[in-house]
């Protein structure tokens, strides 16, 4: 390719658009379904199905441990997988800002291709629009995913039951802190990379080993604290967790300590919460720990009937407090 920057023409549907599709998108994302280039993808898939959509606007678009392209695949693959499903197909929509270096776009699309291959999903439909400079920030990506539910009954946020064990697949806050460390005005260096990864293969193994898994959730925006509160609310149960058992990397804890943030509210992009009958917890943990994506998996608490809708934290001192939902995003603070 000789062009260097995305021009408005590339979203026009004309020759320039076609070149972009053929020379860049198909090169990295092409497969038997996508490369037909009809108006819609023809799929052969049977229900019950899980479907999810998400839009990705992360800033910066390249960050330690990943980029917006990989994130757009992992994020939607994980959402579909959390229903006890095998993600099969993704669609992707791109909003590109005029002037985006083609080199950056290609890196991002290549990264999506690699992430899709790793997750075993096909990208079967796509769309690209280019907006004038300043009307979007470099690149926004929407992905929609669909997959076949194999778990029966399927996990759901409504199924946490008293007596269940609460497991987490690894350390918390890595993605959120990695992004923060790149923010202008915060100026710190942390040896922390985003944890962004597709969890679908591990989810299959966990369900096969543990049988009935009541809840699977990936604690993305709002972190562990927010997601557990959502589950407590949906299921009408109390979630009781032990602070000393919750895995947080020392560097994440340290970065949070001087910014005045709580790592349990920071986003994760490669972790899941697994709530299941206590009797199956050890089997699930063993499978998780045998996989690099779940090496730090631990049991962090239990579900009880008391305090329905709330998350109760037992601190290392043995005290109890609520771990509530935040009103909005966490901001670095000095007091």
């Amino acid at each position: 390719m000789t062009i260097e920057r995305v021009l408005l023409d590339y979203g026009s549907g004309g020759q320039a658009s076609h070149r972009l599709v053929n020379e860049l998108f198909l090169k990295h994302l092409g497969n038997a379904v996508l490369s037909v280039l009809d108006d819609a993808a023809r799929l052969d898939i049977a229900g019950p199905l899980a479907m999810s959509t998400d839009s990705f606007v992360v800033d910066p678009i390249f960050f330690p441990g990943g980029d917006i392209g990989a994130l757009a695949v992992h994020g939607t693959v994980n959402d579909v997988a959390m229903l006890g499903a095998r993600p099969r197909y993704l669609t992707c929509g791109f909003i590109l800002e005029e002037g985006l270096p083609i080199e950056d776009l290609e890196k991002i699309v290549a990264s999506m291709g690699a992430a899709a291959a790793e997750a075993g999903v096909l990208i079967v439909a796509g769309d690209t629009k280019v907006v004038p400079r300043g009307m979007a920030d470099k690149i926004f990506i929407n992905t929609t995913g669909i997959g076949e539910i194999f778990a029966s009954p399927a996990p759901s946020g409504h199924r946490a039951a008293p007596g269940d064990a609460v497991l987490i697949s690894g350390t918390l806050g890595d993605h959120g802190l990695a992004i923060l460390s790149t923010r202008q005005g915060l100026s710190f260096d942390a040896p922390v990379a985003s944890d962004c990864a597709s969890l679908n293969h591990l989810i299959v193994k966990v369900i096969e080993a543990a049988g009935d898994v009541h809840v699977l959730r990936d604690p993305t925006r709002g972190g562990l604290a927010t997601t557990l509160n959502e589950i407590a609310g949906q299921s009408g149960v109390g979630v009781f967790i032990e602070e000393s058992l919750i895995p947080v990397k020392p560097a994440v804890a340290a970065g949070c300590s001087f910014l005045g943030l709580d790592p349990l509210y920071l986003a994760n992009e490669g972790k899941f919460i697994c709530i299941l009958p206590e009797a199956n917890a050890q089997a699930a943990l063993a499978v998780m720990r045998a996989d690099p994506l779940g090496a730090d998996a631990v049991r962090i608490g239990v579900v009880r009937a008391e305090h329905p809708g709330k998350v109760v934290m037992t601190t290392p001192l043995g005290g109890q407090r609520l771990m509530g939902m935040l009103e909005g995003e966490q901001l670095p603070r000095i007091c």
Partner: peptide
């Protein structure tokens, strides 16, 4: 530095 996190 604290726990590998550095700043000025």
């Amino acid at each position: 530095e604290i726990s590998g996190v550095t700043k000025q």
